[in-house]
Design a binder for these strands. Structure first.
Lengths: 210, 210
DNA sequence: ATTTTTCTAAGGGTATTCCCTAAGTTTTCA
DNA sequence: TGAAAACTTAGGGAATACCCTTAGAAAAAT
């Protein structure tokens, strides 16, 4: 008997997965949760074999929660639930201990396949789908430089710019000269192909760098 | 017997709503759809009384689809399905003919309540929840005006700013003085609660004004 | 251990944004 | 048909962003 828990802040998703699994004799949904906090509390008492975990929870960041759970309860295997939109998260969440991920538009067969695969201790990765999505989001935008690589410092400056800070304020925050901040901003503009700070923010949000 | 259709690109959401409704004797789910196109095709043959419609479909914009459906099939009452995140759409979608909206984390009681209310011909609006969400997104960000109302001209200037144009370029584009452009930008900043143009763009994208 | 990248920073400008105040004109709406 | 809101313009000044070049020091990669 494979014990399953589900965490998703959308109630219908909870009930949807539950109803899809209730006919399977070797699978038992032992608990459902709407928040990360609730999930962690429940696991103090009883743990499932597999947790379906929504990446976008209101209270706790899904990546952080995955890390917490896999550290505290190494026997629980996390399958991330994700929308089309946040595929960029997938790699990060897998790096943080998740055993697989499932798109929310997955049908029953894929759901069961994921459970079977993960309960065998293997990772469940839909490489084809992943590629398809990446290509699709690549096709509809302009010839987007696939993923512009900003350095650590540039990311910090980018973050600060997005906080509406001025060059002066950023320099004080990062303990560097205003001239250095300007240099970083220029490099960011050049890397992202932006004409000014407005463009930096627009593109950064588009490419989910923030 | 109330006939229901559901359109959502997340299969588990479809099955979730279906399973929540299957015990209700006076309600019958007559069809489920994963795309807007599929929905429209199916409605050529048979129409439900109520359609639960996901705002974020991959193929057709939910607002456009609502408009299309309510014009082509005036007897169908649309209830928009929405996440926390896109509450800003709600007013727009209601303006385009939807009879109500439901958050995806709604429980069974609310689902049934929505169906009852809408089938009586009344609008189903969860004012309390709406306010709660607005307040919540207000708490974590700066004191953002609920839904900032920009004038036509301000919208044009906003659009131009987002195109990375300078004040000079905007003034040429709109055939107005640069000083006027600045005045508009100042008003936009003030209305959105932004500190600079970066903030304008960030907030405008957040509130989907662009 | 050496090349490459990143981080740092300066000088010296120009361009643009930001901010204030003020006020005439037009549009919208009650 | 008034009153209110929106649109328009402007002057002037301070602050900030943008742009170029150059270049040493630190860190990372090979």
């Amino acid at each position: 008997m494979i014990k399953i828990s589900i965490t998703d802040d959308h109630y219908v998703v909870l009930k949807g997965i539950e109803s899809l699994l209730k006919d399977e004799k070797h699978i038992s949904v032992i608990s459902i949760h709407e928040t990360g906090k609730d999930t962690l509390q429940a696991f103090e008492i009883a743990q499932p074999d597999i947790l379906f975990l929504d990446i976008n929870l209101p209270d706790i960041n899904g990546i952080v929660l995955t890390k917490t759970i896999t550290k505290s309860f190494p026997n629980i295997r996390v399958i991330a639930l994700t929308n089309h939109e946040d595929v960029s998260f997938v790699k990060r969440i897998l790096d943080n201990g998740a055993f697989g991920y499932l798109l929310k538009n997955a049908h029953k067969e894929e759901l069961l396949q994921a459970i079977e695969t993960v309960s065998k201790g293997e990772r469940y990765l839909q490489k084809d789908i992943e590629k398809k999505i990446l290509n699709q989001s690549l096709g509809r935008k302009e010839y987007s430089a696939l993923q512009p690589k900003l350095t650590r410092r540039e990311m910090e400056v980018l973050q600060a710019i997005s906080e509406e800070l001025t060059t002066q304020e950023i320099s004080e925050k990062l303990f560097i000269s205003p001239k250095t901040v300007e240099a970083h901003r220029m490099n960011i503009m050049s890397k992202l192909g932006a004409k000014n700070s407005v463009g930096i923010i627009k593109i950064a949000l588009e490419k989910q760098l923030l």
